[in-house]
């Protein structure tokens, strides 16, 4: 009896393992292929891509579309803006997050509980789109770079991750020692807490930087000036602009040709612009992914 059950379970385990590996391989394909396709499509001959001949490897290698893209000035303005928003925004985020998280991690700070509650409320309840918009508008930030940076200066979720790291990974005795040595809170924070918190600081910096890089919403709401639009807004214009042909239009052969050229160009621009926008990510990702994961683990500690 026991023998039979054992045999049954090894048998079902074998099936389980095989199915498992097959599913994983399938998922691998699903995760990788869309991005891989964009990559090979961007260096292929646009006509071949339109015909659907590009599936597994590039056909008719050409870098024409990249040359075209370099002439597309709007994209580079967007790129420059996004670089600025990402760098300045992340610096502001980090300063604000640290000065938010540190006092809230101090058990001997009287109003800690009160402020924790007040800030937690904002995670679940907010004024909403229009009341926030009115505040930003009244501050004169609409259509300035500040709208991209100041209203999103702190993500309380990230501050909570940092706070729980401060509380769990830095021994209280260090603070007593520092105060015996005559160091004030600021000196202690800068010379002891921050250096000891490098892992969590790295993770949260990355979180914020990725957020800024991918942020489309903020600009949609607050930025109308074309010269201030971030990369994602420009990308949206390229990716979503549909070149539709209405059948009622009487088209001469030449018109048709010109139109086809336009569609082809529009298509290849899509692939190249996606590649250009995610290149920083693609290059850095293998090196930094373990830090991202670490962040989830740190955040999982119930603080």
């Amino acid at each position: 009896m026991v023998k039979k059950r054992k045999w049954m379970s090894t048998y079902s385990d074998k099936i389980f393992d095989v199915v498992n590996v097959l599913v994983m391989l399938f998922l691998l394909l699903i995760f990788v292929w869309p991005l891989y396709f964009v990559l090979i499509a961007s260096v292929s001959d646009p006509t071949e891509v339109l015909r659907g001949n590009v599936v597994l490897w590039p056909k008719g290698l050409s870098i024409d579309s990249f040359v075209q893209l370099f002439k597309y000035k709007k994209l580079w303005i967007g790129y420059r803006n996004t670089l600025f928003y990402t760098v300045v925004g992340t610096v502001v985020n980090m300063i604000m997050t640290i000065i938010c998280a540190y006092p809230l991690s101090r058990k001997d700070w009287l109003p800690r509980g009160f402020f924790m509650k007040m800030l937690l409320v904002t995670m679940y309840f907010s004024g909403g789109l229009i009341p926030t918009y009115i505040v930003v508008k009244n501050l004169g930030m609409v259509d300035t770079v500040w709208a991209m940076i100041i209203p999103s200066a702190i993500s309380f979720y990230n501050a909570l991750i940092m706070r729980s790291y401060f509380m769990n990974s830095i021994p209280d005795s260090l603070q007593e020692a520092a105060s015996l040595d005559g160091a004030n809170v600021l000196q202690y924070l800068v010379s002891i807490v921050i250096p000891l918190s490098k892992p969590v600081i790295a993770v949260i910096t990355l979180y914020y930087a990725v957020w800024h890089w991918n942020d489309y919403y903020t600009a949609l709401i607050y930025i109308y000036d074309r010269n201030l639009k971030p990369l994602q807004s420009v990308l949206r214009d390229i990716l979503v602009s549909v070149t539709t042909v209405s059948s009622e239009m009487a088209l001469t052969a030449e018109d048709m040709e010109a139109l086809q050229e336009k569609i082809k160009l529009g298509q290849s621009l899509k692939y190249t612009s996606i590649i250009v926008s995610i290149i920083p990510m693609l290059v850095l990702y293998p090196f930094i992914q373990k830090y991202f994961v670490k962040g989830v683990m740190v955040g999982a500690i119930k603080g």
């Binding site: 991005l35 890089w213 991918n214 942020d215 489309y216 994602q232 990308l235 949206r236 390229i238 990716l239 979503v240 899509k270 996606i274 926008s277 995610i278 990510m281």
Partner: peptide
Amino acid sequence: ISTVVICG
């Protein structure tokens, strides 16, 4: 990956 790129 940004939502814009996903939608693209």
